[in-house]
Design a protein around this nucleic acid. Structure first.
Lengths: 357, 357
DNA sequence: TTTCGTGATGTAAGCGCTTACATGTATAGG
DNA sequence: CCTATACATGTAAGCGCTTACATCACGAAA
């Protein structure tokens, strides 16, 4: 079948060690044998056997990313960031996605299995203590993206602050009954966003009204559109009706938008909406939201991972990025946008997100 | 470091062969030693070394997908289809994406390298003859998605028909000067879509006016938004102005939409727009388009690939799926939509795409 | 009792590379 | 001319598994 270094060795009349050397450290081989070997390799159309290399070298040059779902805007952008930094280095990407949410354990286990990858990027899945221990035990650098654990390197957005900023914005715009859409069970980022929401309310001297907080059920995915749609329907039944909603994700916000329109009400006149994420969709929907610098997160996480892989004993760091308020149509603060002459589907603030030092 | 079967063998007082057997074919081992081995494995927290298994077994249980870009709606959905069928089988996913378009060769080469994967899914990149030969030579099942080559199994959408249907639709709606946006260099699917466009025009007894065909330059990606934007600006300068545009992709269509609005014109009153793909974005933008059943393509491609991997000598088949016209706001055929009471951002046809037998 | 089959286990040869170490050869210094 | 040195190459032992084949023990059949 495929040629091996033995075939080359034979043909070039050298030992396999020499073949391996010209392929890996050409400088250690004399020019004449080098060219002889190269020629033989050429003729045999030789390609090294990756598994054999991986075994012998004791590393794979694979990076594993485990994510809750594939088809998702946020992850898509994170992946792009990952991809960008991996492209220049000699690493390939494996992706592990559970078929069912409960399978995440199985996928994580598989991802950190010896001989599978040199490091793993764990997206949006905060490890419990037992997992944290395993991750630390197994000597495979792992970094958390959009999740946090004190003992594991991580990079995430400041969700509490995002929730706070979203709510402050709405308060500043004069809305009185500001509702919130979260998910149940509530993933950690959603909890933090809700806490930011509550803090903003309290700081403004208002009560947190539990009837104005609706949780969408979390299937198939906590932040899915349908959940937002249903939660909004619940909220619309409240008397008096809320005049603004901060949703824990853009997809939920978009679902909520549907529900509002379906009820014959309009956004933002009757109800203002603010989301969280800033996916491409949001731009088109004119959704005011908090931007998560997804690509930057993927990029930085990967750089950190590579750093850990390439020289051990890096200190662990936990990085948090600031989300950025992007004002569009659905919060009713249009005026400022119109004022600077942009089309309604363009954001009024396009600068890069800032990072705390 | 990590425990190996030698450690288990020693602890359980058996040979490594027996350990391997209880792990892989437990039926061949007596119950007593089996439990002894299992216990030892448990205690040592044993995990098999993937690279070693891959080498010894002569297969990896990895599927490689090579795609031109990651962050793209179409591929995202294709990936979801792939993911779905892989989830139940014991395969993991590797993804190879070039950092620069010219790197695609490098990535393909790496993907079909021995010992890297058991099969590859090649997205949107029709192989030239030299590549086709290599793909056939190397004994690693490869299937083309959204691309075609007579000698390699493939699955794609009928692009010519899509272009034809799009144009027919516009003609039927009474538009007179129907323009087209393609890309330059023009990837094969774009060519086919254009050909469909031209055929529809001719069949309706109209001339193909080359000044009504604008090609956007293809960077960073042939079907990108910016290209559509620029091409539309070109088209807007034509006298008389076109009253409809069929764009080769939704992203281009969306870019075109921007350009039209920026020119102070409105869609569909002044200019109708039809795209191709039907991404989630299109739904929100109310874009009339031809739906590519991306997820189904990924699903079927993966099933075919697995079939080839699991028993060799499958005949090669080339399947083509019919794209489906999804009528929304931007083509001006709103009436029918409004008539059945749906919100403007909902499609008027939600049935599943059909497949030719 | 002998023979043979059967099931359980062990032995050892790979899988295709990498690499520490040994060996050999040419060159320069004495 | 001899030895020390540097450089080029070969030898062979892994890397951690799988698996064909050999071995062994045991009970059934003769």
């Amino acid at each position: 079948m495929a040629a091996t270094i033995y075939d080359i060795a034979e043909r070039a009349n050298v030992s396999t060690a020499t073949v391996s050397r010209v392929l890996n450290k050409p400088a250690e081989v004399s020019a004449s044998t080098r060219s002889r070997v190269l020629e033989a390799a050429q003729e045999l159309n030789y390609q090294p056997h990756a598994s054999a290399q991986n075994l012998a070298r004791q590393h794979t040059n694979y990076i594993a990313v485990v994510a809750p779902v594939v088809a998702n805007y946020f992850y898509m952008h994170v992946m792009r960031g990952i991809q960008h930094v991996l492209a220049d280095r000699e690493y390939d990407l494996m992706i592990h996605v559970p078929s069912h949410p409960e399978d995440i354990d199985k996928r994580l286990k598989s991802a950190i299995q010896p001989g599978r990858s040199d490091g793993v990027l764990l997206l949006s899945t905060p490890p419990n203590e037992s997992w944290a221990d395993r991750i630390k035990d197994v000597d495979r650098p792992t970094i958390l993206v959009d999740a946090y654990h004190p003992d594991i390197e991580s990079i995430a957005v400041d969700n509490e602050r995002g929730g706070y900023d979203a709510t402050r914005h709405l308060i500043g715009l004069g809305y009185e009954r500001i509702a919130h859409i979260t998910a149940d069970p509530e993933p950690p980022p959603a909890t933090q966003r809700r806490e930011g929401y509550e803090r903003a309310l309290r700081e403004a001297g208002r009560d947190v009204d539990p009837t104005l907080i609706a949780a969408s059920d979390a299937l198939p995915f906590a932040f899915a559109e349908k959940g937002g749609y249903q939660a909004m329907q619940t909220l619309l039944r409240r008397q008096p009706r809320p005049d603004a909603v901060f949703a824990a994700s853009d997809m939920q916000a978009l679902g909520a938008l549907d529900a509002v329109q379906e009820a014959g009400l309009s956004v933002p006149e009757d109800i203002a909406i603010v989301g969280f994420d800033d996916t491409d969709l949001s731009r088109f929907a004119g959704l005011t939201t908090l931007r998560q610098p997804a690509e930057a997160m993927g990029k930085r996480a990967t750089e950190a991972l590579l750093r850990h892989i390439e020289n051990a004993n890096q200190p662990v760091s936990n990085t948090v990025l600031a989300p950025q308020l992007v004002v569009r149509r659905t919060c009713g603060a249009e005026s400022s946008v119109a004022a600077n002459g942009q089309a309604p589907n363009k954001s009024s603030t396009a600068s890069e997100p800032t990072t705390p030092s």
